[in-house]
Structure formats: structure tokens, C-alpha cells
Computed example of a mutant assay.
Amino acid sequence: MPASLTRPSGPFSGAWHRLTPFARAQIVGWGLFTLVDLVNRQLTYQDLTVALAMSAVTYLLLVGLSAGLGLVYDRIFSGTVLGARVVVAMAALAAVASTLIVLATVLVRQGFGWSIPDWGAMEEIALPFTHYAVALTGWSLLFFWIRADRQRQAAHAAALSAETQMLAAKAEALTAEIQQLRLQINPHFLFNALNGIAEEVPEHPTAALAMLRDLTDYLRHVLAGIRVPVVPVEEEVAALAAYLRIQQARFGARLRVRVEMDPTAAGRQIANSLLQPLAENAVEHGDRSQVLELAVSVRMEGPALRIDISNTGRLDPAHRLRAGHGLGLANLRRRLDVHYPGRHAFTLDETGGGQVVATLVLEGEACSAS
């Protein structure tokens, strides 16, 4: 739409829009007040020309004096609460301004020889003085109210801005923390996987190639999660299966894996790479003296997502004291606090049948901090 249709053009329009909102309110407000005064003056003077001239004089005086009062209030009472002392000072200043208006109008009338029919000297002074003193006192009260409202709005806006900046800073810190947690987990797994591939290359190149493909699939999932930190459960389970195939290739017949996923849980969102520390803990600290049985179950339990990862073994002090045993689980707990604050449960228990079971229950959607 052309600018000429959205805002009137011309010198007057440009000057008007350059005025402050306070100045515009002054002009309009006192203009309406003067229109009412004009009717009274016409009835008083019985002469439209005189009424118009006197109204113009008082209008200019009211605009100028009220602007001056505003400057005084901003300088002397800038942060003062409206109390008895301020009201008295306000009334006194309004009286001074009213006196100046009365003196000016008297001088104008005397200069042009205009008189008010049937009015004496006291009526010509006392009535206008009271009239303008009341008007300027009311204007002063309105000025204080509007200024206090603006200050409240400014304080509210400043508080919102500070809160927004604080939330942004927290989000940045959260992002950095999660990335740090990922870096603590992934290089450890990568080191083990590459060692396993290197061991397989000389005698079993086909198996090494399969491990390399699984490693590529898993790393693609992890790296994509840096940009998309929350993924469908089926993608997380597929990446976990690739990880476990690499471990099966490393340990051979000593590791048997079963992965089950409820189809109703496939589309549920979950934090990327959240399950890998549980599977890694089960593989590294499970009992591989004969055959390590590892089972992964992912299903819906009411509205919550439940993951069970079990392995043969025991939760004894010797397992807990192995190098690096607590790092992955500590990172997992921290990530649960970040992605599911107050909406998760994690347990690591030993059953009577020589099984260690890690159970994770996640309620609601994961917070998508990256």
C-alpha cells in the first residue's frame, strides 16, 4: 500500500508526528478544554471575536505552563510517591500557574479595552483563578498517574527482558552441558569400537566391514542428534541395535543379545543416545565368564515410556570399582534431569536369578535442549 494512503503527507503532518506523545496529548487535551471554555466565554462576553481571542490566549498559556509544570515534576518529584507533601506542592504550583494566566488575561483585556458585562473586579479575578487552579491541579494528578503507569510498564518490560536474557543464558549453558555429556560418552564407545574393528581386520575382514557399517550407522545417528536432540524411539532403538551388533562382533559367542520394541512406542520421542550408556554398562560390567545374556525391552506403560535393559551379572563392589563404571550412569542421570526434569525414574537392581536390570521410565516428551 502506498505511503500516501497510510499516513497523511505535508509539513503539518510531518511536524505532528515528530512531536512526543506527551506534547500531542497536551495539544489535544487542552484544545478540548478550550472548546468548552469558548462556549462559556461567548456567554460571558457576548462577543464571539473577543471570546475567540481570549480562548486562544488561555490555550497557549495552558499548554506552555502545563509543559513547564511537567518539567518541574520530573526534576523535583521524579521518583516520589504521590503523598500529602507532593499534593500540597502540586496545588501551590497550580495556583502560581493559574495566577499567571489570570494576570495575562487581565492585561490583554485592558490592552484592548475588553470588559465583561455585569462583572466586578473580584469576579474577573477570583472565578478564573479558581477555574484554572482546579483544572491545572487535575492535570497534575493525571500527569503523576500516567507517569507512574509508564514507570510500572517500563519496570515490567525491564523485568521481562532480564528474565528472557536469563532464560537464554540458561539455555546456552544447558546446550553446552549436554554437548559436554555427549562428548564424555561417545569417544569412550568409539575407542572400544575402533579397537574391535582393528582386531578383526587381519583375520576376519568381512566381520570388520560389518562392524564398520554398524559403527557408521551409529555415529550418523549420534551426529544427527547434535542438530536434532530428540528423535523417535524407533531411531534410537535402531542405533542401539547397531551398537550391540558391534559388541557381539567383539565378544562373539560370549554375548547374546535380544532387542524387543513395542510398535506403539516406535513414534514416541526420546532424547538422542539416551540408551547407549545403559547398554554399554551392561556389556562392560555384565558377567561374561560364560555367556552374557543381554535383553532390551522398550514398551509403553500407560502414558509413560518404559525401557528395561537386563544382563547376567551381579551388583557387587568389584563391579562398581571397575575403571569408568560410574561415568556413563552419572552422565545418564544428568541427562535425565535435563531432558525429563521431575518426570523420570531410573533404577538399577539385581534380581534373585543373577540378573542386573536397569529400568528407565520416562513421562511426557523430552525437553529439546541441544
Rank of each mutant, 00 (worst) to 15 (best):
G252H: 04
G342S: 07
D118M: 05
N281I: 04
E301I: 00
L69N: 11
L348G: 03
N272P: 00
A23Q: 11
A97W: 01
V296Q: 02
D349F: 00
R250F: 06
I270P: 06
S13M: 05
Q290H: 12
G10M: 02
F143Y: 14
A155T: 06
V63Y: 06
A253I: 04
T44F: 03
D316I: 10
F22K: 01
R7Y: 04
N331W: 02
H339P: 07
L183M: 12
S98R: 03
Y243K: 02
A345I: 01
L69C: 04
S310E: 14
R7L: 11
N192A: 12
S140P: 12
E365D: 15
F129C: 06
V356S: 12
L71C: 11
V96N: 00
A15D: 05
Q153E: 13
L305C: 06
A97K: 07
S98P: 04
P277R: 06
T44P: 02
A92I: 15
S310Y: 02
R256W: 02
D217N: 08
L127Q: 10
A295Y: 00
T20P: 03
G324S: 10
G10N: 00
H156M: 07
G64D: 10
L181N: 05
V222A: 14
M300T: 05
D262G: 11
R268Q: 14
L5R: 13
T351W: 04
A318Q: 14
G29Y: 06
A207W: 01
M54W: 00
T99N: 01
D337C: 05
G68C: 07
V201I: 15
V57K: 05
V108T: 11
V108I: 07
Y243M: 15
L136C: 01
